[in-house]
């Protein structure tokens, strides 16, 4: 009888150990998988929102005109937010279209543009009549808009 009691106790203990082990493993596995899924979900959400926002960003170069006389020549650039999301212009650059060398660069600190609104920047630049160059506008979402002009 004593032997029987020992076997029964051992079986219970074994079962308990087995069950608790399985429970611990299961909890760990489920926790890990949920955590992993949540992480992927957050990444996906970030990527999605970033790309969607970039996709929805759009500006048009509404008016670019060349004014002034030496040595006070300037270029007035007006862009309009024609996308369906607000955007923030952070940089305007002029680039030689032939060798892609940067002719001018300016960081913009007040370039926030709401939907359908315009932003004008007057840039002092010694433009040359007939000499074409590219104007590049960067947003804080790193969207690049480009147009070519010839004074």
């Amino acid at each position: 009888m004593a032997i029987t009691h020992r076997r029964a106790l051992a079986s219970i203990v074994t079962s308990a150990i087995l069950l608790s082990s399985i429970a611990m493993l299961g909890v760990g596995l489920v926790g890990w998988s949920n955590s992993n899924l949540l992480s992927h979900q957050r990444d996906l959400e970030t990527t999605f929102s970033k790309n969607i926002n970039k996709l929805n960003e759009h500006i048009t170069f509404e008016k670019i005109w060349f004014g002034g006389t030496n040595p006070n020549k300037f270029i007035s650039i007006t862009v309009t937010n024609t996308g369906n999301i607000g955007l923030n212009v952070t940089e305007i650059r002029f680039v030689d279209p032939n060798d892609l060398t940067e002719l001018f660069s300016s960081t913009i600190y007040d370039g926030g543009i709401a939907i359908s609104e315009s932003y004008t920047s007057e840039i002092n630049y010694d433009w040359t009549a007939g000499s074409a160059f590219d104007i590049l506008v960067n947003t804080n979402r790193d969207t690049l808009f480009r147009t070519q002009v010839s004074p």
């Binding site: 069950l19 429970a23 299961g26 596995l29 489920v30 998988s33 949920n34 899924l37 979900q41 996906l44």
Partner: peptide
């Protein structure tokens, strides 16, 4: 029962993730 609980948890998480995706 314990296995089924774990399975349900894992399966529902996966389904939720796939649905979200």
């Amino acid at each position: 029962l314990v296995g089924a609980v774990f399975f349900i948890i894992a399966a529902s998480s996966t389904v939720a993730y796939v649905s979200y995706s």
